[in-house]
Design a binder for these strands. Structure first.
Length: 415
RNA sequence: GUGGCCAUGGUGAAGCGGUUAACACUUACGACUGUGACUCGUACAUUCGAGGGUUCGAUCCCCUCUGGCCACCCCA
């Protein structure tokens, strides 16, 4: 039996790579317009970084991390998300000192030891963005607007934006207690999972898919109604700025995020097209994270998008490119000429294909068609003698003779 | 970690106890002696994920293993 890839680790094949590149390019272009710079950080970090940032009690840290002891006896972990590493670098290189506002984006693989299913893999890719240094709600609104902009730039109108506020260390603990009291009264009408989660993660019950939990929590107290004045103002202003630039959103007061560091604004881009994996992007504000990691007291907000999930929403075929020219050569001399000519054209920036094996004209033409080449150039003995050859436009079938000269051909193909 | 479904060629698949293992796509060559697409022809699985069992006989039934998909938990 041949060796296969590790479970949940996927190859991204040539047939889909152009779609991936398109997603990445769109992110670079759109984020660039909003003043973001790319940062590349390692895919492995000290385990402690993730414990501190994501939260020791979260599922990610408790059961999903790829953690090893290396040969120097250090505990290291393949990153399960991007924010922690980026913030570590931000603090380590004191980026806050050079500029009070920093806008960074990153892309790359993340690793979580979960059971794979549709839109969920053990190695998956995220594109994320982080703004640090500003707590003003204009940044929240701008970040969300950029996210929406990215999706519309990709031609995806379907994922819709949902927002919520999780409050801050001032108001969230109190709300948590209020919610717990509420849930305790309904305890026997909740599903087993929610009963178990009551103490560890009561917010989760608001998001439970089990019907009886939905019923039981229908009139549960909402975080949004228990925000402190500062958080309430922040949320209201965020909304007003979103309205000001017509960024569409829906308030979802039951939205829960899985990472401990989130404060105030949280959000998700949701689609109904991916089975149970409905979130294609998600994020929030994390005003306490940087200081928790030993940095200065600087606020932050960011999001991450799941590239595989976005890719599932996009059709491969739309992003495939094909060679501009196929050179059909008949006879050994013509093949030699085709090789030289194609090299000259390639050096001039034209994408060219030709046959390597001296196949029949028919198979060469078939291959040109299969590769969707824009043009074919046919070279045989008479063309070598005359110095001109027929150039055929495949789409229309029109053809005319052209000089066997790379400059002339390159010019013609570019026109 | 738990549950459900599934495993036949390069691909999508039919077959469900005895078949030349259908059909379609892909690929290769040809019909068209130097012009693709459409059409037509020819070729392409000694073998049905692996191992064991039942049977005169197993792709088909049973068991074990492995792999995949989807769902739960959780999450991008």
């Amino acid at each position: 039996m041949a060796i296969t890839a590790i479970k949940g680790f996927n190859d991204i094949l040539p047939s889909e790579i152009e779609k991936w590149q398109h997603i990445e390019k769109t992110a670079r272009d759109v984020f660039g317009c909003y003043g973001f710079s790319e940062i590349r950080v390692p895919i492995m970090e000290k385990t402690e970084l993730f414990c501190r940032s994501i939260g020791d009690a979260t599922d990610i840290v408790e059961k999903e991390m790829y953690t090893f002891t290396d040969k120097g006896d250090n505990r290291v972990t393949l990153r399960p998300e991007g924010t922690a590493g980026v913030m570590r670098a931000f603090i380590e290189h004191k980026l806050y000192a050079a500029d009070p506002v920093s806008k960074l984006f990153y892309m790359g693989p993340m690793f979580r030891y979960e059971r794979p299913q549709k839109g969920r893999y053990r190695q998956f890719h995220q594109i994320g963005a982080e703004v640090t240094g500003v707590s003003d709600p204009k940044v929240d609104a701008q970040t969300l607007t950029m996210l929406s902009h990215f999706f519309s730039e990709l031609g995806l109108d379907e994922p819709s934006l949902e927002i919520n506020s999780l409050g801050c260390p001032e108001c969230r603990p109190a709300y948590r207690e209020i919610l717990k009291d509420f849930l305790r009264q309904k305890l026997d009408t909740l599903c087993e999972d929610c009963q178990r989660r009551l103490d560890t993660n009561p917010l989760r019950a608001l998001d439970c898919k089990v019907e009886k939990c939905k019923v039981a929590t229908a009139d549960a107290p909402a975080m949004l109604e228990h925000l402190c004045t500062a958080c309430d103002t922040h949320f209201t202003e965020t909304r007003s700025y979103l309205d000001l630039v017509s960024t569409g959103y829906r308030i979802n007061s039951r939205m829960v995020r899985g990472l401990d560091y989130y404060t105030r604004t949280t959000f998700e881009m949701i689609t109904g097209l991916l089975g149970s994996q409905s979130a294609v992007a998600a994020g929030g504000r994390y005003d306490g994270l940087i200081s928790d990691l030993g940095g200065p007291s600087v606020p932050g907000i960011g999001f991450a998008m799941g590239v595989e999930r976005i890719a599932l929403l996009l059709d491969n075929a739309k992003f495939q490119t094909s060679p501009a020219l196929f050179i059909v050569a008949l006879g050994e001399e013509a093949q030699k000429r085709a090789f030289c000519l194609s090299t000259e054209l390639q050096r001039a920036g034209v994408s060219v294909e030709f046959d390597y094996e001296g196949k029949s004209m028919k198979s060469q033409m078939r291959r040109a068609d299969k590769l969707s080449c824009g043009y074919t150039l046919i070279i045989g003995e008479s063309e070598l003698a005359s110095g001109v050859a027929p150039l055929k436009e495949m789409k229309t079938g029109n053809q005319f003779v052209i000089a066997l000269d790379s400059k002339t051909i390159a010019q013609e193909l570019k026109s």
